[in-house]
Simulated assay, not measured.
Amino acid sequence: MSALAREGAGGRGLDVRRLVLGVALPVGACALLIALFLAQPYRILYVTTPSIPTGWYVMKQIAPDHELSASDSIAYRPVIPEWARGRGIVNESVVFAKRVGALPGAWLQTHEHTHFACESRAHARDPLRHCRALGRMLSHDIQGQEIPDLPAFEALEIKPGFLYVTAEHPRSFDSRYQGLIPRERVVGLIYGPLW
């Protein structure tokens, strides 16, 4: 074999190695990162409703005994009231993304169709002065149908194992319509939107 042929063969061999290193290595690294990401307690979810800003979020799965705070954004499996079933306004197969509005130990009070979180039973007697508004309840759903049996609270203390979830959007399907959410239905904390 001539020197030129050996050089050509060696050159092609080098090109194949460059191709393997240039393509297979990055693809393999990406696959490894994806596998590691999926093995961790993180997921990517897309929020499609305006309850919180629409976009892509990272969800970190949490243990059932993870202590939540009143500012956490969470993903949870919803509690669908009987009146909402079959109306097509809620998809029961997805997780919801909301903000924790009140935790065990807080007192809830309803005043003029608005839920309030209060620090004590005494504060619940005058929610406009002493409590934080969580959201106003609407009397009709997005389709214009009346909403029966709205949750009303009269100096109700949130017991361990439950929480009140809320969102800024006036039509958010949160605890104003679902009532208190069992803590066991929370699947993770969410961070974002990423974009």
Rank of each mutant, 00 (worst) to 15 (best):
A3T: 07
A5R: 15
A5I: 14
R6Q: 14
R6M: 11
G8N: 13
G10Q: 13
V16R: 13
R17N: 09
V20F: 12
L21G: 13
F37Q: 10
A39F: 06
Y42I: 06
R43D: 06
R43S: 07
L45A: 10
Y46M: 12
T49A: 11
V58L: 15
K60G: 09
D65G: 08
H66M: 02
H66D: 09
L68R: 07
A70L: 00
S71W: 03
S71F: 08
D72T: 07
I74V: 11
Y76G: 00
E82H: 09
R87S: 08
V90N: 05
N91M: 04
N91C: 09
N91A: 14
V94C: 14
V95L: 10
F96R: 00
F96H: 03
F96V: 07
R99G: 02
G101C: 06
A102C: 08
L103V: 06
G105T: 04
G105R: 05
L108A: 08
T110F: 02
E112T: 15
T114E: 11
C118W: 03
C118D: 01
A124W: 04
R125T: 13
R125A: 15
P127G: 08
R129F: 11
H130Y: 14
C131A: 11
R132N: 07
G135C: 08
R136C: 09
S139G: 10
H140C: 12
G144I: 05
I147W: 05
P148T: 06
D149G: 09
P151Y: 01
A152L: 12
A152Q: 12
F153N: 00
E154Q: 15
L156Q: 12
Y164Q: 00
T166H: 02
A167Y: 04
E168A: 14
P170V: 05
P170F: 04
S172F: 01
D174S: 02
S175G: 06
S175T: 06
R176I: 02
Q178F: 03
Q178W: 03
R183P: 00
L189H: 01
I190G: 00
I190A: 01
